[in-house]
Design a protein around this nucleic acid. Structure first.
Lengths: 133, 133
DNA sequence: GAGTATAGCGTTATATTATAACATAATTAT
DNA sequence: ATAATTATGTTATAATATAACGCTATACTC
């Protein structure tokens, strides 16, 4: 079982570090303005790094928010099978890492019989701290 | 069991009809350009109707595509619990209406114990017709 | 190690998606 | 009938994302 991890490029590293520093998902232009001091000047530089980081599973995109969050699963083996819970009132997002759910969904077949190679699932609700306030 | 369906407004009707005519999901600005002959001139008119139609469950948003599709389930009772399958190569989208999946997901609790009131699930794969070509 | 293929960089410009804000009109509820 | 709510039409602009181009660094292969 070899682990051929290509090293990240300079921009990829800068942007991944910034995303990892944040608990909450961050937006592309917010990333941009926060890494400008590191020499990243324009949107394409950010989006290119984001695309790559998503591809290799280091981050995920929260589609309903157009935001990006670091993968919490140490070694995200199936980068394109993601599940999140999202609080309707505070927008807090957490990644769900539930092997049963994971398996259930990857085994799921629709009625046309095709098997899927990935999914994105976003649950909505009210988080504990918002509920009590 | 009463069915209090408020009638749709003029713009809502125009836009819903346009979306229903299309098998595939449509984009907001494509809707706009196709309903301009009916007197809808500007983006806010479209987005306002879209928001309302989503709220009442007549249409759904395909988040990963920023596109909008009519609900196929005759009377979509839980408008905010949606599942789609999306073909990676032709972008064909179909709504999945599987009661077991539906129940499984609405019953799902994450490890913080909160129950969710909605979800959006998008499966990715290659559809039958793309696979054979 | 020279040559070539691939991936990444920096930049400008522009496309695409979505909302703010404001004045008015229509509809619904009391 | 009046008040409250919902929808409309409009202008302007915000927020998100990509095209295209020339160049540089890295990896691949013989």
């Amino acid at each position: 079982m070899e682990n051929k991890q290509k090293p990240l490029s300079k921009n990829q590293k800068i942007i991944l570090e910034y995303i990892q520093k944040n608990k909450k998902p961050v937006k592309a232009y917010s990333i941009l303005s926060n890494v400008q001091k590191k020499g990243i000047n324009a949107p394409p530089q950010v989006y290119r790094a984001l695309d790559k980081l998503i591809e290799i599973g280091k981050i995920h995109k929260v589609e309903s928010q157009n935001s990006f969050v670091a993968c919490k699963t140490s070694d995200c083996e199936t980068p394109h099978a993601t599940a999140f819970s999202i609080c309707d009132s505070c927008d807090e997002v957490s990644e769900i890492n539930d092997p049963k759910l994971f398996k259930y969904l990857l085994d799921f077949k629709d009625n046309s019989g095709i098997k899927f190679d990935g999914y994105n699932l976003e649950f909505f609700g009210t988080c504990k701290s918002c509920e009590t306030s």
